[in-house]
């Protein structure tokens, strides 16, 4: 019996929803090692990954940097999200890592077909956005979006929210105690004696 032909876009096959298609369903909590890895790597010109190859690291880093870009404020790049992704994909996630690798190869092929580049990370930001927009309903994109955002907004000790960059972006102060007034409206309520 002939082997079932593998569709070129099998790993980038569209799913109906953006958020629910992530294929990272299971990981163990042992990714605290990511913290140390991230600490060692941030600012380094030759970052090292525990799971990803150098090229995979560059590709995923480039994708994360389009999901939460660096503009007037820091983004996924400065938060060190790539080290969180590296740790998660290395943590009992062989199947998911394999899917990510396959999808990256497809994205590289797309980058070549559309823009004549060997790698996604070599494209301009506009070209990268074009490639990502084409695949934004795929499980692969949902997965990398999920990991980028989860890394950036989870506890800094997981390695992807360096210097609480994610928290600062949205105005979340992780003080462990607050007292009233908490916001404008309750301050106003107290002032008016309602």
């Amino acid at each position: 019996m002939p082997a079932k032909p593998i569709s070129r876009r099998s790993f980038l096959k569209s799913s109906s929803t953006l958020a629910k298609g992530s294929f990272i369903a299971l990981t163990a909590p042992a990714i605290l090692a990511a913290c140390r890895q991230a600490e060692e790597n941030i600012g380094s010109t030759e970052p090292s990954f525990s799971t990803l190859t150098e090229i995979e690291g560059k590709e995923l880093r480039a994708i994360a940097a389009r999901i939460v870009p660096t503009d007037e404020t820091p983004g996924a790049e400065e938060a060190g999200v790539i080290y969180f992704i590296d740790a998660v994909l290395g943590d009992n996630a062989e199947k998911e890592y394999g899917q990510v690798r396959s999808a990256l190869r497809e994205i590289q092929a797309e980058s070549g077909i559309k823009f004549g580049a060997s790698y996604f990370f070599e494209l301009t930001a506009e070209q990268q956005d074009q490639v990502l927009t084409d695949i934004e309903t795929t499980p692969f994109f949902a997965t990398i979006r999920y990991l980028t955002i989860a890394g950036m907004f989870s506890l800094p000790e997981y390695g992807g929210n360096k210097d609480k960059i994610g928290y600062k972006l949205i105005g979340f102060n992780d003080a462990h105690a607050w007292s009233a007034p908490y916001g404008f409206y309750d301050a106003d309520y107290a002032l008016k004696g309602e």
Binding site: L18, A19, R66, I67, V68, P69, D71, T73, G75, D129, L132, E136, R145, Y146, I149, A150, M152, F153, S154, G166, L169, I170
Partner: peptide
Amino acid sequence: MGFALGGSHFGGPKWGSEYK
């Protein structure tokens, strides 16, 4: 984290500068 995964909550892109 749960908040950011759900954004943009009031419509708009789910990634990129406008999402941010």
